[in-house]
Design a protein around this nucleic acid. Structure first.
Lengths: 230, 230
DNA sequence: CATTGGGTTAACAATTTGATAATACAGGAA
DNA sequence: TTCCTGTATTATCAAATTGTTAACCCAATG
């Protein structure tokens, strides 16, 4: 099963459009660029697919049967899980009002049809590039250094070896010190949305990390999740 | 480290274009939106101004005397200080090749002239919105800080730990200081519509909050509900 | 093949939270 | 005052959640 964490792995894109041709051609080009692509033929399907796959980017046609793109955007943005998701409108409607409304709904960009597939791909790349600017390969918090590239944890000069899942879990928590990560969030980021694991799995990994680091840096927030703090 | 100039401070925008009219109209609209705007008439000036003001966003015309926009972008992106700066091209050149080259240079967007000022402003807003997504949603009322992300209550510098229901209840009340929340409203928001709990449950939680905060901030409105006030 | 270690799970212990009941209290109306 | 209604307080218990350990499966390794 190919589902790694989505911090350094293949980005998932969901395209929603009622014209099969458009869907087809965009899908083809984005796949060629190495993205994992899902499609939806209308608004409701878009919402379902979004929930199912937790895409990194959603491309929405404005005019679709049922819920239109702006509705979909509004609905998704209301849910915490899609607060940060990239959303781009792609529409034949090029009037100023719609475009402004689209952007103010919380979309990241508004593209007008017809659009060259290559340009679309470039725009998509640009969006992801900006998003990844933040992710650093080496994170340092106090005396703790997390090197994503080398897969190494270093505390006060001494290396600590963590297994992959342990490492990724710690790296995730440490990526935003203080922030409480919900168990769901952790599952999605570390295990991916496809995999389903039991309830105690996270706890066991947390325990191993605490044990290996021998450092009180992961706090339990009961009923909510875990957070990293030095 | 995150760039702290993201928050609460007026964003600085640098516009580089050799046509005074364009400069003028864009400047006007962005200023009206509350941005601080600087201008440059050519590539070299753009680089100088960028270094001088460290803008948060740079809008670059492609065709300018001396260094063109793409050159400017390349030069800036090479310097660490401008690695994260938002850069947008604004060009009359709408051919595919230039646009793709522009985006691949490391720009965040490519806009084509002519462009409606309102749409430009919307795009700019959208870019900043994305950049600020990082910022935690923190509510502050007087000396009381409620951090939803960190799940922490802080009063005058000291952290107070609340259980989940307590936290959510307080967060709800504090979300609209002064407003009286009916008991029903509270039940729906904190407990959900499915769950049915007894009459005294809310009181008990309110009491615990009062006790832990040790601060007279929740007022009882007899026969109606509760409200938060400092 | 046998070994090793990562990853998962089951089972149970430990802990915390949340709901309730019982009772005390406060303020207004009769 | 006295009653009545709604809220505060407290202790208690059930439920939910997490911690811990050991056992298991499986893939990679030699």
């Amino acid at each position: 099963m190919r589902s790694e964490n989505n911090m350094s792995i293949v980005k998932k894109i969901l395209i929603a459009d009622d014209e099969p041709d458009i869907l087809e051609i965009i899908q083809f080009n984005l796949k060629a660029e190495g993205y994992e692509v899902f499609t939806a033929k209308n608004g409701n399907e878009a919402i379902d697919e979004a929930k199912k796959h937790q895409p990194d980017l959603i491309i929405l046609d404005i005019m679709m049967p049922g819920k239109n793109g702006i509705d979909v955007c509004n609905i998704l943005r209301m849910q915490p899980a899609f607060k940060e998701t990239l959303i781009v409108f792609l529409s034949a409607l090029s009037d100023e009002g719609t475009e402004i409304r689209g952007l103010e709904t919380g979309a990241d960009d508004y593209l007008t049809k017809p659009i060259s597939p290559k340009i679309l791909v470039s725009k998509v790349n640009a969006l992801f590039r900006r998003l990844n600017k933040e992710d650093n390969d080496i994170v340092q918090i106090g005396d703790l250094i997390i090197d994503r590239e080398k897969y190494i944890i270093n505390y006060k000069g001494g290396d600590i070896i963590l297994a992959r899942k342990e490492f990724e879990l710690l790296a995730l928590l440490a990526s935003k010190p203080g922030k409480v990560f919900l168990r769901n969030e952790i599952l999605n980021q570390v295990w991916g949305t496809e995999v389903i694991v039991g309830d105690r799995t996270i706890d066991v990994h947390i325990r191993k990390i605490r044990q290996k680091l021998n450092l009180d840096c992961i706090t339990t927030v009961k009923g909510v999740g875990y957070k990293f703090e030095l």
